[in-house]
Write a protein that binds this DNA or RNA. Structure first.
Lengths: 232, 232
DNA sequence: AACAGTTTATGATTTTTATCATATGAATGA
DNA sequence: TCATTCATATGATAAAAATCATAAACTGTT
């Protein structure tokens, strides 16, 4: 986990066009100056439930998961996030900044850390930024809630189909990809048991809907998978 | 549904100490002047999914539900809200103000309507208000997500027990209360079938954990109910 | 009061999902 | 290198929940 003070000048950074669209030039410069950057290896934990968060942490490259552990030790994965995704907005400013989620890294990733004090100050002095921030927040929150409902209204086959399509369409944007998570983690995302995830994937393989090679998945029949996801 | 222009001078209004805590006196006056108020009878729909929302609508008295209908017509109740609850924050500013939720009234209710344009303006010009607004938003969003996870990690008995305790502790603050919803709606809240809600309530009755008299529920053994909720 | 429609209720049955058992290959570590 | 753990895999079984069927109680309407 290397921390690097100066990394890039942010001029080309995609984030500029996302949550920082409305910053004035000098404000964005300040964000850039005060940000730090860290690299994480696959599997490393970025922060844990209960930890004090003093930065807005966003993903510059890689893939991460946000998860929630119940008191009984059961893990629920709430969201996977690709670079510049806005889920991290939900992790801040809550409960005196004590995070209720944990975050860990699924693929080698680079994270940017922006001090929360600066974010708060920007909200304070720049109304356009604040409005945009709020709008992103609500959008993210609603997307998360909607995804939950969608998933929990489906049966096992529907959930697995949905998740495969999600990876294909939203994360990797191709029909062949490496699963970034274990079958166990898939179970934690879509709310079923590991055995049934494995079984359902095997079913899809036997039905020639997907091709499985270890972690590599190829979607052979997207149409059928969509139908299963939709009606499942 | 009566719309009333002038209703109260807001001076004593609880909302002042919630999301409007940081407004300057004249700002709050403006909120008060531009607000309208409507009364709804039990069962009436306040707005539906897909509708353009031009106001922040908050509950002054009564009880409401926010719900989400899937494409297949299945209903999921996302949240019940008591007066001055912050859930309504999640319904605004999303997707060009097209609501993804519906809202209807469970008990005769009075709602206050504050123009979104004014809210946006306040966010714009008053940084403290904006910060507080964001903090409330994140808190509400996380509470909603957390409640979902909690519920979906429980079995049927656990869910029904959890919901009875929720009504008792959070909504009515007593051990005897009138159910504000039908068994069918309970099913839509906690994600199970109507029959199983009825059956489980009957079980609790036979086990002398609760007393049922139509819509009236009395919790006789809170300890046991808590255990069922916790370990279910 | 009679009627239809809805809500509550309960039992029987089927379906779905979790659990348990067992096996194999891959990864990890002393 | 060999034992150990972990991920994947599959079958058998048990448990959980949904569905189906039926009926009584209640609501609102004419």
């Amino acid at each position: 986990m290397n921390e690097v003070k100066y990394v890039c000048d942010c001029k080309e950074c995609i984030i500029r066009n996302l949550i920082f669209k409305h910053l004035r030039s000098e404000e964005f410069q300040e964000v850039c100056r005060s940000k730090t950057q860290k690299s994480f290896k696959k599997g490393q934990v970025v922060f844990e439930k209960g930890q004090l968060l003093e930065h807005l942490i966003y993903l510059k490259s890689g893939l991460v998961k946000y998860y929630y552990s119940t008191n009984e030790g059961k893990v629920n994965i709430i969201s996977l996030s690709i670079p510049f995704d806005a889920f991290s907005l939900l992790t801040i400013l809550h409960n005196e900044q004590i995070s209720i989620y944990s975050m860990s890294v699924l693929e080698d990733s680079t994270l940017c850390y922006i001090p929360l004090s600066l974010i708060k100050n920007l909200i304070h002095i720049n109304g356009d930024f604040a409005l945009d921030f709020i709008s992103k927040l609500i959008e993210t929150s609603n997307k998360t809630i909607e995804q939950f409902l969608t998933l929990h209204n489906k049966n096992l086959r529907g959930r697995v189909a949905y998740f495969m399509l999600y990876l294909s369409d939203n994360i990797y944007k191709k029909n062949i990809f490496e699963l970034p998570v274990s079958r166990k983690e898939i179970a934690e995302i879509i709310g079923m048991t590991t055995e049934n995830v494995i079984r359902t994937l095997s079913e899809f393989r036997k039905e020639k809907i997907i091709k499985i090679n270890g972690k590599e998945i190829e979607i052979l029949e997207k149409e059928r998978l969509s139908k299963i996801s939709q009606y499942g």
